[in-house]
Amino acid sequence: MFMTTMGIAVCISFLTGTISLVEGLHASTSQFSNAFEHGLIAVYDGNVLSQSIIESSTVDYINCEYAACTVVKTKIELGNESIETYAISIYDPFNLLDLNGAELTMNDILIGKQLKAEMENKNITVSDGMNITLAKDDKEVILQVRGIHQNTLFSDDWIFVSKNVVTQLNPQMQSAYSFLLLSENNIDIIHQLEEEGYTTQSLVSITKFLELGIYQIENQLYFVVLTSAIIIILLVYSILNIEIECSIADIKILKYMGASQKLVLSIFLLQTVFISLLGGVIGVAIGFIAANALVSFTPLIGFHSMILPQASISSISLPIFVGIISGIIGGFIPAYKASTIDVKAEGR
């Protein structure tokens, strides 16, 4: 019985060890991620900023500081040539973006430095006061350059214009915005907007990249754990099968003494459940020890990490559950077979 219990314990320790390592990876990733700023959160409709429409009525019930931006894809007409760009107008009532005058009056335009370089490559000298024609479909607006924008938040080949200009180019945006920018601290509002179907995206992505990337790894690792669980069920079944088959002599004695099939079955089922439960508990302990030992000793072979294997409901309950289920299956089949032995006929 000792060997059987230890055999089950070793199988179960695999599940506990691997699950606690994956959960340790999750926890350390989450800790890293939380230690970093995520910056502003962009909220928009669909997948593309220039096609997103957020009605101004949505903005009215947002009870936090925000900036609202309207973007339109447009062309700068340069005689025979044209340059594709994006025109953006910003409404920043709480000075969240620290724009320093990028909110423009009616016919002003600020040009990004990359766009300026692009225009100069086409032999067009950009200077303050020069007229520029923006066109979208059959609509045209003539504007006057007021300077180069230094804003780091938006692309350097975009242009800053007033809301009025965006509306002239795309009348749909009259009482709407393309996207909102909120502080990352407004978690409840961001979740509410997500529930309403809006897309949210942090303006600083590295921590999200790592978080999502490592969660992708976790999913694959859980897949490996689950397929291994099937093998473990078979192994535990096999181990308990040997235990019950070794007890066939005891079953015969019980039957000689007049024990019913039900009684024999229940005694051996109880025994297998007890063994698998005991093996499960010992296995969980061995699993945590093994996982911690692995992490502690990996620096010896050149792997330095910050993972701490995590104990959780799933890393404890799942292995024990797998152990008991396979124990019941592994115990029931041979015990049932043995309990149906006709000892009287054998005696004759």
């Binding site: 910056g39 962009a42 780091t152 938006f154 692309s155 303006l203 600083v204 990249f209």
Partner: peptide, 12 residues
Amino acid sequence: VLTGSITPVIME
């Protein structure tokens, strides 16, 4: 939509 990696940026 592409956002910044370590500095806040948004572009299309």
